[in-house]
Computed example of a mutant assay.
Amino acid sequence: MTDDAQILIAQLLTHQTLARENKLVKRALTDETFRQEVDNRLAACGMKFLDNVYADNVTLALTREIEPKIFGSREVWQNNNLGLARDGVALLVVLWALIILPKRERQEAHQAALEDQEDMFGKDKPMPRAEDASMGISYRALLADFGDKLGKKTRMDMNLGQLSKLGFIERRGDMIMEGPLLDLMMDTDALKDRIVNGALSDIFHRPLPKEAEVIAFPQAAEQDQE
């Protein structure tokens, strides 16, 4: 007998991502009992429901406990996550930092502005859609800034093609835009300070804190994209 939890999980397994506006996704995000049922069924398979308020989509991921049993030991699978080469992982982290972090700042600023406005009915103010806040980055600018570090044009084009197939980015002419997985599969809490204040501090024009841990650029991507 089919039920809504079964249908939602089957849809996510089939389509990889679903929009937050999807009827069953909305229910999973608002109905605690339904969400618990979904989580329990996924946990039995070593999986979890993945979402965050900044993204327009949801997806599924393996739980941390099951990852080594699927991908092998840490040393084996750490550098081969999703089949990406070392420079592909580094490019993924760069794109996340240049597209997602500014988008989140715009979303939070817009949200704060809404909350400052008087609302006589006290209605909830949803987070601005990622589609509206995400601006992307120019391919030519990316190549000029990072081409020498990431294998030059041939390697970058190859890795961009793979990231597009995996759902991390979308290509729209010269622009590289956020894909459905870019803001879901990267651990912002673990990455943000280490990337912004470390590996990409020169790009964000922020002084390096005196006691900050400095991580060499490519290695940072390897360590964090697990």
Rank of each mutant, 00 (worst) to 15 (best):
L101C: 05
V196K: 08
N80Y: 11
E21G: 00
F71W: 12
I203S: 06
Q111C: 02
I9S: 04
L60I: 05
M120N: 04
T154M: 05
S201E: 11
L60D: 12
L50K: 04
K26N: 13
A28N: 05
E170I: 12
L13A: 02
M158D: 14
L18R: 01
N40S: 14
T59H: 01
I169P: 07
L18P: 02
D202Y: 00
W96H: 11
V25L: 03
K153D: 14
S201I: 03
E211N: 09
Q107E: 13
L166Y: 10
Y54T: 13
G173P: 09
L191P: 01
A55F: 08
Y139N: 06
A216Y: 13
I7N: 02
L208N: 04
D157T: 08
D132Q: 12
N159C: 10
P102S: 04
N81H: 13
L114K: 11
Q6P: 00
G173C: 07
Q225G: 00
E170R: 13
V38A: 01
D124M: 08
I176E: 13
G147Q: 10
T33I: 12
Q219H: 05
Q36T: 11
R129I: 11
A130C: 09
D3S: 06
A55T: 10
A85M: 07
A144G: 04
N159F: 02
F204E: 11
I99W: 05
P180D: 05
A61F: 06
E75T: 10
L42E: 09
R27V: 06
T17H: 02
N52Y: 11
D31Y: 06
E75Y: 03
G167R: 13
K125Q: 15
F168G: 02
L24H: 00
D145W: 02
C45T: 03
M120I: 14
H205T: 09
K48F: 11
M156C: 01
D124W: 06
T188P: 01
P128K: 04
I203M: 08
P68C: 07
T63A: 07
H110R: 13
A90P: 00
E222W: 00
P180A: 06
A212I: 04
T17R: 01
T14W: 08
V53Y: 02
V38M: 02
I66D: 05
M135I: 11
N52Q: 09
Q107Y: 09
L24V: 03
A221F: 08
R64Y: 14
L29F: 09
E67D: 02
I100Y: 05
A212V: 07
G72I: 10
G136P: 06
M156E: 14
M1C: 08
G167Y: 09
L166E: 14
I99P: 02
I215N: 01
N81D: 07
L101E: 15
P68V: 13
P207H: 04
T63H: 05
A216Q: 15
A190E: 15
P102C: 03
P218E: 12
T63E: 14
V38D: 01
V89M: 15
L12I: 09
R104D: 14
K210R: 12
F49Y: 11
R104W: 10
G147K: 03
Q219D: 15
K103T: 15
N40V: 04
P180F: 03
R35D: 01
K210P: 02
M120R: 10
A10T: 05
E131P: 00
A221P: 07
A85F: 04
C45V: 03
I99A: 06
H205S: 13
Q162L: 14
